[in-house]
Design a protein around this nucleic acid. Structure first.
Lengths: 215, 215
DNA sequence: CCTTATGCGTACCGTACGGTACGGTTCGGA
DNA sequence: TCCGAACCGTACCGTACGGTACGCATAAGG
């Protein structure tokens, strides 16, 4: 502790200092552990060994803290760009299965679930600002990876579709179904986690049956 | 006002009086309007012209009130049983599209969204009791209708599948995709609502391409 | 050594909520 | 007519939270 690094210099990824990053990390930990009720300003200050006054100076108010938490967490997820290799049917399938696994893993993560619960809980408040933020930072990111993958498959003549957006929607639905909602509602993720790999494979199989060329 | 109807007699659907039903109706209105923050015991009492003491007598505590709201709302949804008529491919398709439309309509309803947000917000609290209740009363009900429909289609030799549960999961994913989550996060339902019918038809088409026999 | 900035820890304030208690009132039944 | 049960409206209590203010410690810079 006492590493400090204040003053506006030594900024990390998104315009905030390392100290502020660790504070957000602690706040995320509190959120995961006890939900929104546990995410009080006093609690964050205590858990992060900082003062409430600093919290308000850094993040403005409680909502600013929540937004910063979402932005911070989203900034940690880096999408893996798929290089334009020569795709075969089998390689495309493997890439799709890997994407499906990654998608499921992200959605079932503790922090992701906690942040989604938080944003959903605030949806009827102040124009769903957190929800839009989560949507923008989260879905857009992983959607881009999917779009690139689908486009590569189309260029290789392995799959055919009109709208990439709509096709991605179908792929998403086949992979996720209502699993995300069930986890958000509190269903034990441990029991579901064992089914992740076969689920991903079945979803991709169905997807390729729908969009695959001569399949 | 002053209609009363007290005393334990004149019970309605689920073991509660008409008076209590109207109270729950008012509470649901408050929840839809302002989210969980607006659902205070004093607010419900004021909106329903009853006393807080009566609320606690009838529902125990705040959680009891929330559970009663979910049970009450779930009790209003009646699943339409499909009679075992002779199914043709076209009739099955029409039934599936009707089911898809109904599913989308239910999920996009104000009260449904508000209750789902409520249950999700409470998911990290006391073992996700509300989430399980919502799951039990909501999904099971509409899932039964889907299962009956799928079974009828299979018996008529129009579709083929192994697990009805898994097949229903696929159908659900094709219909809903991430639309439910987006609405829960606060995305405007008006913009999405225009796309409901084509979405339902496309989903059913894809489903029949996956599971339809010869065709 | 002095000054200034930054931030921790704590105390404080106003508010709002869950839950309880009580007086007054209405209504059904004897 | 009287009794008791249910109930409304309101007041009340304890607590917890968001946000602010203050005193003190620490460290950089002249």
């Amino acid at each position: 502790m006492q590493v400090a690094a204040q003053g506006g210099a030594s900024e990390g990824g998104g315009g905030l200092t390392k100290r502020q990053g660790t504070v957000l990390e602690r706040a995320l930990g509190l959120l995961v552990e006890g939900g929104e009720r546990a995410l009080t300003t006093a609690g964050v200050a205590r858990a992060a060994n900082c003062s409430k006054e600093s919290l308000y100076k850094w993040f403005g108010d409680r909502d600013g803290l929540l937004s910063a938490m979402i932005a911070y967490q989203a900034g940690k997820v880096r999408t893996v760009e798929v290089e334009a290799e020569t795709l075969t049917a089998e390689r495309l399938r493997l890439h799709l299965v890997a994407f499906a696994r990654d998608l499921i893993d992200v959605l079932s993560g503790d922090v992701s679930l906690a942040l989604n619960r938080l944003a959903i809980g605030q949806a009827s408040r102040e124009g769903a600002k957190l929800g839009r933020l989560l949507q923008e930072r989260g879905r857009r990111q992983i959607g881009r990876r999917a779009a690139a993958l689908l486009e590569a498959g189309r260029k290789a003549g392995l799959i055919a579709f009109d709208s990439a957006e709509e096709t991605y929607g179908t792929l998403y639905g086949l992979i996720v179904s209502d699993m995300h909602l069930r986890m958000l509602l509190g269903e034990d993720t441990g029991a579901l986690r064992q089914e992740f790999t076969p689920r991903a494979e079945k979803a991709v199989d169905a997807f390729l049956r729908l969009y695959g060329v001569k399949g």
